[in-house]
Structures are given as structure tokens and as C-alpha cells.
């Protein structure tokens, strides 16, 4: 099951050129870029691990693409996303965020229906991949 989230979730995965263009868009607006990765794709897992420091003071997308290449080489089978942070007063939020790398095989989620009193049902989703310990999930 292909997991989608973030700004361009409805689009097919970006090519490097398209990623670069989006990064340029962020830099033009003075949004620092951060590269994050995870192997726990649960939708409620919003805090991913950051790859190195946030990329401040960078003027050219080539530098960020280089860091992204390093991140992909280190975590080829993790989810990797890029986010642009708008620090301006009144905004101070992630302005744009999209997935740039995903595991080759995404097993999807199991839906658990918990029977409760009065025929009520409580739903839980659990990633099949998350059964294994972190680091061995998408090998």
C-alpha cells in the first residue's frame, strides 16, 4: 500500500528535478529546509528523525540535493521527507512537506476491530512493518 502524506500527497512521486524545483521555491521564500526519515509509517507518527542539522543559510538547491543523496544512501529503505519551515511572525509552522523516498516494498496496515460493549467497535491500525524492531522493518 503506497503511503501518502504531506503537501503533494495526491501526486505521483517527484523526480529529482521536481524536488529541486520545490526546494528552490522554499529557498526563494526564505524557508529553511530539513530532511527527516523514519521507518515507522503510522500516520500519527509525526515526529520523524532529522538527518543532520536543519539546512540553514543555504542559497542553492544543489547543496540540499547533495545532503538528500547522502540521506538516501544511508537509509535507502526508509521514508524520507523534506520540509520547509516558515519562521515568519504569525506563521511559524511547517509550510511545505513532502515524501521524497519510500521503501521498495510497503506492506500496508492491519485494521484491528475491537469489540466493545453494546456492539460498539473501536478501530486501530497497525503497520505490518512495525512488527519488527526499528531498523529491520524494510529489509
Amino acid at each position: 500500500m503506497r503511503i501518502t502524506q504531506g503537501t503533494f500527497s495526491f501526486l505521483p512521486d517527484f523526480t529529482d528535478e521536481e524536488i529541486k524545483a520545490q526546494i528552490q521555491y522554499c529557498l526563494d521564500r526564505d524557508w529553511p529546509i530539513a530532511i527527516e526519515y523514519t521507518d515507522d509509517p503510522h500516520p500519527r507518527n509525526v515526529y520523524w528523525d532529522m538527518f543532520g542539522m536543519p539546512l540553514f543559510d543555504i542559497r542553492d538547491p544543489a547543496a540540499i540535493m547533495q545532503t538528500l543523496t547522502e540521506c538516501k544512501a544511508t537509509f535507502p529503505n526508509h521514508y524520507i521527507r523534506i520540509s520547509g519551515y516558515d519562521r515568519s511572525l504569525g506563521r511559524a509552522t511547517t509550510a511545505l512537506q513532502f515524501i521524497v523516498n519510500r521503501p521498495a516494498n510497503e506492506p500496508g496496515f492491519h485494521v484491528e476491530r475491537q469489540e466493545m460493549s453494546d456492539r460498539r467497535i473501536r478501530y486501530t491500525i497497525r503497520s505490518y512493518a512495525a512488527d519488527k524492531p526499528s531498523g529491520q522493518r524494510y529489509e
Binding site: 543559510d57 542559497r59 544543489a62
Partner: peptide, 8 residues
Amino acid sequence: MLKKAMGG
């Protein structure tokens, strides 16, 4: 530093 200088 090299990253900061990229494009310049």
C-alpha cells in the same frame, strides 16, 4: 561551508 557557498 561548502554547502553555503554552493551557487556562489
